[in-house]
Amino acid sequence: MMSIATLTLNPTIDVAYEVDHVFHTRKMRTKSEFYEPGGGGINVARVFVRLGGNARSYYLSGGATGHALDGLLDLHQLVRNRIPIKGHTRVAAAVLERESGKEYRFVPPGPFIEPGEWQQCLKQLEDAQCDYMVASGSLPPGVPDDFYGRLVALMARRNIPVVLDSSGPGLRGGLAEGGVFLVKPSIGELRQLTGRDLLDQDSVAGAAMEIVDKGQAAHVAVTMGHEGALLASAGRQLHLPAVGIEAKSAVGAGDSFLSAMVFAISLGWDISDAFRFGIAAGAAAVMSPGHDLARPDDIRQLYERVAQIP
């Protein structure tokens, strides 16, 4: 079994509530509350470990909320490397309105990261022992746009493949370095990256193949919600529809997708089969309430359905 290291520059404490109805001004009493450690890389590590893999989480953490995040990670028994920062770790909230079934999500930008802090992060990663480095999540304020590009270059010198899942400047800066092993943009992130509408499957496939052809990434997995997902690699493309399930929450779907795909790759699966396993995990996460991620039994059950799609 191979191991991964995950990097989360902008982690969160994810808080989830349920209320009967959302009103303005009035105090709303919640029916339940949940607290989980979150942020792209941390979520990837959680699912990877659930599936039976080995993962070490590198993350920035600071302030009173940073200590709370550390404690939540310990409750999940995740192996962790904390890079201390002055700023307070952010808290994100998801509120489920029971009456409508709608979910409202509130996500702050995160703390400002000092130059010495993000530089210390890169220094720690010089010693990371892993078979794959998964960089997932947004860049917090203060971190340079080319940070993920620097990480890709650092890992390239150590022959460690990098998996990238970010948005905006983080995605652009990571791909600009070239040589990413796998990148997983959502359709919205790919539109932002290319500046195009990408309204049909052919245009999405074309944009993904451009990334491959430029040598920016060997594999591009584009998640498109209810329209399924698309995989582009040298010489091949694969588009698969979404699994028909009842959606309860979109929280952690992309992270679950990526984690399961990398897990399957680490087992030596063909990239297409790993892609199918990722689709199953994304669907499994959508089946779960907003405070949870994909569960292995659900992933494997749904994979049987995805595997039968021609």
Rank of each mutant, 00 (worst) to 15 (best):
G268D: 06
A285G: 04
A264Q: 08
G290N: 10
K248R: 15
G282A: 08
I245K: 05
A253N: 04
G235M: 05
G282H: 02
S272H: 11
L258G: 02
R236H: 09
A229M: 04
P296R: 08
V243T: 12
L231R: 08
S266E: 01
G244D: 13
S249E: 10
L240W: 01
W269R: 06
A260F: 14
P289Y: 03
V262C: 00
A284W: 15
A260H: 10
A260Y: 12
L302A: 11
D270V: 06
G252Y: 04
S259R: 00
R276G: 11
M287F: 12
A242V: 03
K248V: 04
V251D: 03
A260S: 13
A250R: 14
S266P: 01
F277L: 07
I265P: 00
I265R: 03
D270Y: 07
R300H: 15
A260R: 05
A260K: 05
F263I: 00
G268N: 05
D273Q: 15
L240M: 14
F263M: 00
G254E: 06
D270Q: 13
L267K: 11
A285Y: 05
G290F: 01
D298H: 12
A247R: 14
D255V: 02
L258T: 02
D292I: 00
A280R: 13
A285T: 10
A283K: 07
V222I: 14
H291W: 13
S288P: 01
S256R: 01
L240S: 11
A247P: 12
R295D: 06
E246D: 13
A250S: 15
L231G: 06
R236C: 07
G244R: 07
D297F: 04
I299R: 08
P296W: 11
A274F: 08
D255K: 05
A281Q: 03
P289V: 03
S272Y: 00
F277R: 03
S266H: 02
G225P: 14
G235Q: 06
R276K: 15
R276S: 09
L267S: 06
V243H: 12
G268F: 09
V222D: 11
I245H: 09
G268I: 10
E246M: 03
G254W: 00
F275A: 04
G244K: 07
G282P: 09
L240R: 15
F257E: 01
A281S: 14
D273G: 03
I279W: 01
L240I: 10
L293Q: 02
V286N: 05
R276F: 08
A284S: 13
A250G: 10
R276Y: 08
V222T: 11
G225R: 06
D270C: 04
G282C: 10
D292M: 09
I265V: 04
H226A: 15
M224S: 14
G228V: 09
S233E: 07
L293G: 01
A260T: 02
H291V: 00
A294D: 10
A250W: 10
L230C: 12
A274S: 14
L238G: 09
A247G: 13
L230P: 12
L267W: 00
L258N: 02
A274Q: 09
F263G: 00
S256D: 03
I265G: 00
P289F: 04
V262N: 00
F277I: 03
H239Q: 14
P289K: 01
S266R: 00
R300E: 15
S266M: 02
G244W: 02
G254Q: 06
D298Y: 04
D273V: 04
S249T: 08
D298C: 04
G268P: 13
F263W: 15
P289S: 11
A253T: 05
R236Y: 01
S288T: 03
